[in-house]
């Protein structure tokens, strides 16, 4: 059911993307030829690009192509879009997973400890630190890290990866962007973890566990955390989606060849075909991650799993 909803949503998104690009003034042939457009060359190019077909037909062709991974060719340089996107998608996913691998455990641990030692010095420090990090703009955090960690020679200030870079090198070179992203997303997840657990700490079954004489850590891990997982998973999914779709500033600062930079390039060059493809990928990532979050939170909740 959820999956069907997700697919339906993606379908609607694809309609919106296609429709929005249809609304733009001028068509692809116009954009391609620019100043040198003459009526004959325009007509020839329109024919060649299949722009004379009615909109629903073109939409169908685009959609079926996209489903099989064929997004057509870039208007600017004629290369297949799947080729343009391929390596960059890999880079973006790598950076997102790397940042997630750093930030999810850290924010969970910090959140649980902060809940455990509520209102202690540790709680206040963790909160203040995380909020400070999220309050700075990403590029500022990035430049500060470059100043402290790159100009001292510990880590490279820019990422230079290619398909032959080894995994170890990749992890080393991508450390600063991943750290930047970690600082930006940690606060959100940590505070959600803390709030969800604290919220549950007032529940009767926690009171019961406490009366039984269990240690606070055990109470939190065994009794509170499983019940708090649903909101935490949702917020993690939201942040993962952000890590995939919204890191263009970090990409620019660290010269990281990801999808965000491709999207910006394509928009400024009016390379609509690439914009459509990237937008669709972003939408799919968003929908898929939210879907996954829903499924996972259902699984962690027996009441929802065994609904009568």
């Amino acid at each position: 059911m959820r999956i069907a909803l997700g697919v339906g949503l993606l379908f609607i998104v694809s309609l919106v993307i296609f429709g929005a690009t249809e609304l733009l003034p001028g068509d692809l042939a116009n954009e391609l030829l620019g100043q040198s457009a003459t009526p004959e060359t325009l007509a020839a190019l329109r024919e060649q690009l299949g722009l004379n077909d009615p909109a629903p037909v073109r939409y169908w062709n685009w959609l079926t192509g996209a489903l099989t991974g064929d997004f057509g060719v870039s208007l600017a340089n004629g290369r297949p879009i799947s080729e343009l996107i391929g390596a960059r998608l890999g880079n973006t996913v790598f950076l997102a997973l790397y940042a997630a691998a750093l930030s999810v455990p850290i924010s969970l641990i910090l959140g649980i400890l902060a809940a455990l030692w509520r209102n202690s010095i540790f709680d206040r420090m963790a909160n203040a630190g995380a909020l400070t990090a999220i309050s700075f703009p990403e590029f500022f955090v990035a430049y500060i890290l470059v100043l402290w960690l790159a100009q001292t020679g510990l880590f490279p200030s820019m990422v230079r990866i290619n398909p032959t870079t080894t995994f170890g090198d990749r992890v080393y070179m991508t450390f600063l962007p991943a750290l930047t992203l970690m600082l930006v997303v940690t606060a959100h997840m940590m505070r959600m973890t803390r709030a969800a657990i604290i919220n549950l700490m007032a529940s009767p079954y926690i009171e019961m566990a406490r009366l039984k004489g269990m240690s606070p850590l055990r109470i939190v891990l065994r009794h509170a955390l499983p019940n708090a997982l649903a909101p935490i998973i949702n917020v993690i999914a939201l942040n993962l989606a952000y890590l995939i779709t919204g890191v263009v500033v970090v990409e620019v600062v660290f010269v990281y060849p990801g999808l965000g930079q491709l999207m910006v390039d394509a928009v400024s060059n009016r390379d609509i075909a690439v914009v459509q493809a990237v937008a669709l990928i972003f939408a799919a990532a968003y929908v898929a991650l939210n879907l996954l979050a829903d499924v996972l939170s259902t699984i962690t909740n027996p009441r929802l799993m065994h609904r009568r």
Partner: peptide, 18 residues
């Protein structure tokens, strides 16, 4: 050849010897 669009990133790359 490396494309570095951000002026600050370009300067950093030079300073850090990249």
């Amino acid at each position: 050849l490396v494309s570095i669009l951000d002026p600050a990133a370009r300067l950093n790359a030079l300073i850090t010897g990249e």
